[in-house]
Computed example of a mutant assay.
Amino acid sequence: MVKVTALTKEEAANCPVRQVLSQVTGKWQMLILCALDEGPLRFGALKRSVGDITQRVLTENLRKMERDGYLIRTVDPGPPVSVTYQLTDMGSELFGHLVPLFTWAAERHGEVSAAREAYAAE
Rank of each mutant, 00 (worst) to 15 (best):
L87P: 12
V24C: 10
G44K: 07
A118H: 09
G69H: 03
E107N: 13
G51E: 04
G69N: 04
L33K: 09
P77V: 11
A45S: 00
E60H: 03
G91D: 15
Q23R: 06
E38C: 01
S92H: 11
R67Y: 14
T74M: 00
F43H: 05
K47T: 07
I53Q: 01
I53P: 01
E117G: 05
H109N: 14
V83N: 08
T54F: 06
R63F: 02
G91H: 13
G26S: 07
D89Y: 03
W104V: 01
L31Q: 08
E66G: 09
V57R: 02
G91S: 11
S22I: 05
Q86D: 15
C15E: 14
Y70S: 04
V2S: 15
G39M: 03
L62N: 05
E93M: 14
A106M: 08
G69A: 05
L58D: 02
A121T: 10
H97I: 07
R18Q: 12
P40I: 01
G39H: 00
R73C: 10
L41F: 06
L71Q: 14
L46D: 03
G69W: 06
L94G: 10
P16S: 08
G96T: 01
E93G: 05
G26E: 01
A6L: 15
Q23T: 09
L98G: 06
E10W: 03
S113T: 11
L33H: 03
G96L: 05
L46S: 05
R67F: 14
R42S: 02
P80Y: 08
A12R: 11
Y70Q: 12
T88Q: 06
A35D: 03
E117L: 01
R73F: 03
E11L: 06
P77Q: 11
L41N: 03
V20I: 07
D68L: 13
A106Y: 07
T8D: 12
R63N: 01
A121Y: 06
L94K: 12
L94Q: 09
A105G: 10
Y119P: 00
M30S: 00
T25N: 02
